[in-house]
């Protein structure tokens, strides 16, 4: 096995103002599947169709929109213990805590910590497998390319988040030096190239598994992104969003950074979602791609070559 340590973003927990409209958006428009409900804590657990694990999105009804935390699946319980110890030893994070197994349905114990930009992150090693419903002779046997009865946009997986926070350098250090992520792309200030204002980090072969932009805030959420197989599906997503009169932020268009084709839109509580396709294969020996702030327009939205009004200022 060559992909070790942190495997992927395993879940994102999003706060919503009202559960029912949120659920309608995430199941009927975005097209995730509900896998469990926690009435007591007003939480619903969902997954995308091609994810085998129990859930990748948690919606929690709350008075504020935004992100509660993001969870990362690691390759084994031993890695979980090792990385938890490494995080503790680094002294870079706060609010270290073990969340007992079962607090998320079908999920083993999770190690939670807050990175210097103010975002709560979790590591976990175990989550029940529900499968992707494609097997024809039993689960995962002679599978179909995609299952029947997909609803809405129907992305294959939860893919990454973009988060806003102040101590970008500290958070990058946690992800790179402690958790073993690579830096695929960075945005630097032209006038002061020692100052990084955007970091795109990968724990896998993806162009990014998480990204941060430096803003003078703590723990803010820009978007959660879900993967589609083609540019045409991004266009189809736009059709579905318009049909449901979903608030669209921008797109379909292309990002310069990661080269992904994208559309941004908002859930009923104002949390931004993205569905995207494309990008490139990242390898750990690939040099980081660098953008300077004076090219941030095409870096973010390659066709418009300028940032829309909401990109930097609208987040939850």
């Amino acid at each position: 096995m060559s992909l070790t340590g942190v495997l992927r973003p395993g879940h994102v927990a999003i706060r919503v103002l009202e559960l029912e409209p949120a659920l309608k958006h995430y199941t009927e428009v975005l097209g995730l599947t509900e896998t469990a409900r926690d009435q007591k804590n007003k939480r619903v657990f969902l997954k995308a169709w091609d994810e085998h694990d129990h859930h990748s999105v948690v919606l929690r009804e709350a008075d504020e929109a935004g992100m509660d935390y993001m969870g990362w699946k690691v390759d084994s319980p031993a890695t979980l213990k090792k990385l938890a110890a490494d995080v503790e030893k680094s002294k870079l994070c706060q609010d270290l805590a073990w969340i007992p197994a079962g607090e998320h349905p079908g999920t083993g114990e999770r190690f939670r910590f807050t990175v210097p930009t103010g975002h709560a992150m979790e590591l976990y090693a175990e989550k029940d497998r529900l499968g992707n419903n494609c097997g024809t002779d039993g689960p995962d046997i002679n599978p179909l390319p995609w299952p029947d009865n997909l609803k809405g946009i129907a992305p294959s997986r939860f893919d990454h988040c973009l988060l806003y926070g102040d101590d970008l350098d500290g958070t990058c250090k946690v992800f790179r030096d402690v958790l073993g992520f690579g830096l695929s792309e960075q945005v630097l200030l032209k006038a002061d190239p020692g100052t990084m204002i955007g970091a795109f980090l990968s724990c896998s072969n993806k162009a990014h598994d998480i990204a941060f932009i430096r803003q003078p805030v703590k723990g803010k959420f820009h978007h959660a992104s879900f993967e589609l197989g083609s540019w045409e599906k991004v266009l189809r997503a736009g059709d579905i969003l318009s049909r449901h009169q979903t608030s669209i932020d921008i797109g379909p268009t292309r990002h310069g950074i990661t080269r992904g084709e994208t559309i941004y839109f908002f859930d009923p509580s104002g949390n931004r979602n993205e569905v995207f396709s494309g990008g490139y294969i990242y390898y750990p020996d690939k040099p980081p791609l660098t953008w300077y702030d004076d090219s941030l327009g095409p870096a973010i939205f390659y066709h418009d070559r300028k940032i829309n009004e909401s990109f930097l200022s609208v987040f939850t």
Binding site: S247, D249, F266, G270, S313, V314, T316
Partner: peptide
């Protein structure tokens, strides 16, 4: 100013 249009961002 128009932001998320859904009560979350404050724009």
């Amino acid at each position: 100013p128009v932001g998320c249009r859904n009560g979350g961002c404050g724009a």
